[in-house]
Each structure stands twice: as structure tokens, then as C-alpha cells.
Amino acid sequence: MIGRIDEVVFDCADPAALAAFWAQVLGGEAAGRDEDWWYLDPPGWTRVAFQRVPEGKAVKNRVHLDVEVSDIAAATSEAEALGATRVGDLHADTAGSFQVLLDLEGNEWCVVKPA
């Protein structure tokens, strides 16, 4: 083993807004180290951080978060009320169900309910 994950970092244009959004999704309190670096410590998980970068998002994420929920429809509605955007239809297979969403800056993530 080389090490352990210290935090998951999102490049973004508005770190404070994304930290506030994700704090409402995952729990924890949004906190700023400075205007270019915000983070939250979701209960039971590693730190999620947001760093300001000059370039915008150009392509699909190569890594995304799956957020386990008990009710996908309700979680999707709550996320949309926070500013998330639904992408496509609900997906279901033998492993469970998931809905793809975009956060405030277009980062893909999913609400999932295992089978």
C-alpha cells in the first residue's frame, strides 16, 4: 500500500457554492480555507474539497461520486431543489438503480439504491 485517500478534490469556478451544495447533499459543514479552497467533512467519509481553477469543465468526469439513498425519486427531487440537474432516465439492473445528476458546475454524480 502506498497510502490512503486524504480527500477527494473537485476543480471548479466557485468553491464556496459547490461546498455549500455538497454539504446539503452529503452532510457536514462547508468551510473555507480561503476564497480559492473550500471543503466539507461528510459524516463517515473522507474530506471533499473544492479548488478554484481558471479553466471550465470541458468533458465528462472520469471519476464521480455515487451517493446511496433509500428513495431515488425523493433524493432526485431534493437534489434538483438544491440546483442539481437530472440527466436521462432512471437506470435499473440486477445491481440496483441509479439516477445520473449534475451538480452546480456540471460535475456528474449519481444517487443510487443497491438491489
Rank of each mutant, 00 (worst) to 15 (best):
D93H: 09
E80A: 15
D41P: 10
D14Q: 14
A84K: 01
V112L: 14
V8G: 02
E7H: 15
W109R: 08
L102S: 11
E78Y: 07
N61F: 01
L101I: 04
G44M: 05
A81K: 15
E80S: 13
A81N: 13
F98P: 13
T94S: 14
V53W: 05
E55W: 13
H91R: 11
V9H: 04
R52S: 07
L65Y: 05
S70M: 12
A31P: 06
F98E: 08
Q99F: 04
N107Y: 08
L40G: 04
R62F: 10
G28P: 01
W22Q: 01
E105Q: 07
D41G: 10
S97F: 10
Y39C: 04
F10I: 00
D93V: 10
Q24C: 12
E105W: 02
G106S: 05
G83E: 07
D11Y: 15
E29R: 01
E35C: 08
C110D: 14
Q51G: 12
N61W: 04
D89Q: 13
L90E: 09
E68H: 11
D89N: 15
D41N: 10
T46Y: 07
K60Q: 00
A92I: 09
V112E: 07
Y39F: 13
A84H: 04
A19E: 02
A19I: 03
G88D: 00
E7R: 14
P114Q: 06
L101W: 05
Q51L: 06
A19T: 05
R62M: 13
A19F: 03
G106N: 04
A23C: 04
G27P: 01
L82F: 00
D71Q: 01
V59M: 10
E108I: 11
E29G: 05
R4F: 06
V112C: 11
V48H: 02
V112D: 08
D14F: 14
T85K: 11
I5S: 00
Q51F: 00
G88K: 03
W45C: 09
F21H: 06
W22P: 09
H64P: 08
T85G: 10
V48E: 05
L101N: 07
E80N: 13
P114L: 09
Y39A: 10
D71F: 13
N61C: 10
G83R: 02
M1S: 15
L26M: 06
L40K: 01
L26Q: 06
A74M: 12
A81R: 14
A95I: 12
F98W: 14
G28N: 03
W45P: 12
S70F: 11
E35P: 15
H64R: 00
Q24V: 11
A30Y: 03
F98S: 07
A84G: 08
N61R: 08
A17Y: 00
Q24S: 14
L102V: 05
K113W: 08
L65R: 01
D6Q: 03
P43T: 08
A13F: 02
L102P: 09
E29V: 09
A92C: 14
W37F: 11
N61K: 01
E29Y: 04
I2T: 15
R62Y: 14
D66Y: 04
A30F: 01
Q99G: 09
T85V: 15
Q51T: 02
D103K: 02
A49S: 09
I5H: 05
A95M: 10
